[in-house]
């Protein structure tokens, strides 16, 4: 029995190496592509205020942004002014508050301002798993039919917007 205690570290280690070995065979750059050109996974989430949430099915009709954020996220305040600017340019921005208490999200929005058309609260983080969210902030670009066309990991910088996202939105608008 005592012997087993001394062998346990080796067994745990072997399992870990197996996981690492598998991890190495995965291309980290593939990460964002899982959902590309596919519709959003179905969700219908409550908002941070009663009646304020939205369902995935409602995100269509025009190109838009789905931004995953959280009040505890350090980089989100940095991205926040950019979202304000984007929504000011007439592109709808929807928010998904990830693993955040609605009260905290409300305080955060109150403090920094609200660039979002609607905010859904993914308190349990289940929808974020379906979306394949790896961290906050993360932003999905949706086309008119509600399909994911691009995924931005990390805060949107002015360069990202002007160089990549804005032209993409313009292209998506031109699509039938």
């Amino acid at each position: 029995m005592k012997r087993l205690l001394f062998i346990a570290p080796v067994i745990a280690f072997v399992a870990l190496v197996g996981v690492f070995g598998y991890g190495l065979t995965q291309d980290p750059k593939k990460l964002p592509s899982a959902l590309i050109d596919r519709p959003l996974p179905a969700f219908d989430l409550p908002g941070i205020t009663p009646g304020g949430g939205f369902a995935s099915a409602s995100l269509k009709g025009e190109p838009m942004l789905l931004n995953v954020f959280a009040s505890w996220c350090a980089a989100c305040p940095q991205e926040h002014p950019m979202l304000t600017r984007i929504s000011g340019e007439g592109v709808p921005v929807y928010g998904l508050a990830w693993k955040d208490k609605p009260q905290d999200t409300r305080d955060w929005i109150e403090r920094f301002g609200n660039p979002y058309r609607r905010i859904a609260a993914d308190e349990a983080g289940r929808t974020a798993i379906d979306l394949g969210v790896t961290g906050v902030p993360e932003t999905f670009i949706l086309d008119k039919k509600g399909r994911v066309r691009f995924k931005q990991i990390g805060p949107i910088s002015p360069e990202d917007w002007d160089g990549t996202l804005k032209p993409l939105i313009a292209r998506l608008r031109a699509e039938a």
């Binding site: 899982a34 959280a70 505890w72 996220c73 693993k99 955040d100 394949g132 969210v133 790896t134 961290g135």
Partner: peptide, 9 residues
């Protein structure tokens, strides 16, 4: 097949 991470919470 999911790739997710856990955050500060």
């Amino acid at each position: 097949t999911d790739k997710i991470s856990v955050g500060p919470p």
